[in-house]
């Protein structure tokens, strides 16, 4: 096979592993001035679609954007926003911004960890919840706040945690 044919095979493989809209987006930015600068924007789109980034998608991005794959993974791993593990069905984010911290968000976090037996950045064994820490979500007047998926819970106390989690299918082991 000619080099150009080989390239095409690789390109097709890469195309197949990404949704059409993202492939088109990559093609549109690649021809722009400083096209490689859109790498982070592309990774945002991939993560938005899949919920996380895995090797297959990242090498597809590398292939289509003509950026070395070491650089793609290097950039992706630098930024906290990108995650390489699948997230749970419900995403918990406890705000640890200064206002929430001063108002006791740390104790709320401890309670969540205790009840779900999960660490920050991880997902429960049953894949129901993943736990993250947010830095000021702009609702300081309601501190401390806990966000489940899109919903914001205000003035959360450690004793409220079990009740909130139960809304999402958590069953306390008595």
């Amino acid at each position: 096979m000619m080099v150009s044919e080989l390239m095409k095979v690789e390109d097709d493989k890469a195309r197949a592993s990404l949704p059409e809209a993202i492939v088109r987006y990559i093609e549109s930015v690649r021809s722009c001035e400083h096209g490689e600068s859109y790498l982070i924007a592309v990774l945002h789109k991939v993560q938005e679609h899949f919920g996380y980034l895995d090797m297959r998608q990242m090498s597809a991005v590398s292939q289509l954007m003509q950026i070395p794959s070491a650089k793609v993974t290097g950039v992706a791993s630098f930024y906290h926003f990108f995650t390489f593990v699948p997230r749970g069905k419900h995403k918990l984010a406890i705000c640890l911004g200064t206002a929430c911290f001063v108002k006791g968000a740390g104790q709320v976090l401890d309670k969540i960890k205790e009840l779900l037996r999960v660490d920050v950045g991880h997902t429960t064994k049953d894949q129901l919840f993943s736990l993250d820490v947010a830095r000021c979500v702009g609702a300081c007047a309601l501190a401390p706040v806990l966000i489940v998926d899109e919903k914001v819970y205000a003035n959360v106390k450690p004793d409220d945690v079990a009740r909130i989690l139960e809304e999402y299918g958590f069953a306390a082991k008595k």
Binding site: V137, G138, A139, C140, A141, L142, V145, V152, A154
Partner: peptide, 8 residues
């Protein structure tokens, strides 16, 4: 209508 308002 803002992040804080919506949260409230």
């Amino acid at each position: 209508s803002a992040t804080c308002e919506n949260a409230a």
